[in-house]
Amino acid sequence: MADTALSVPRRSPLAGAADRLAAATRSSGGAVRLAELPFLAQVNVRLDAKGAAADAVGLALGLSLPLEPNTVVRAGELTALWLGPDEWLVVGPPDTQRDVEDRIRTASGDEHVAVTDVSAQRTTLLVSGARARDLLAHGCPLDLHPRAFGPGRCAQTTLARAQVVLVARDEPGGGFWVLVRSSFAGYLTDWLLDAAAEYVRDV
């Protein structure tokens, strides 16, 4: 992908919505901040958490895959999300998916490890700002209170009528990553923008 990225124009699922997302951020005075984080590397990893591959893969990625359900481990540029007892999503900067995939395959040797590039399967929305939780609470049944869903937590759940992976960012005021299937991204963006109408200032 890295080779062709230079010659062929890439278009992210929400490229057409960037202006509307920015406008909603402005009109809320920053109370809700919305933006697409396009082209993040996303690699799905399946392996036996108790097997030898878990440590080897962790070593190769420089992080230990989280074993506690619905938590995140971040190290350097990579973030590993718990998706299931034998399933993780490794998220990295754009154009690193092939490198991540190679490192995992090499590290796993003969162990049964399934690695799938799913970078384009979902896109990532950044939802932050002081009212980010309130905005998500319009459509997310999970308890997003910092006590229940603080930094380092993730969850696969529903937001409005779309399935999402929700990540509580660990920087102060970092807000949430909302990973959504690319085909649902337009719908979810429309839904978020409509919900954000409530937070418009000075109407």
Binding site: N44, R46, D86, E87, H112, A114, T116, D117, V118, S119, A120, Q121, R122, R181, S182, S183
Partner: peptide, 11 residues
């Protein structure tokens, strides 16, 4: 020893 992953939108 098999795993399945949806890649509908990957392609």
């Amino acid at each position: 020893r098999v795993h399945c992953a949806s890649v509908t939108e990957q392609w």
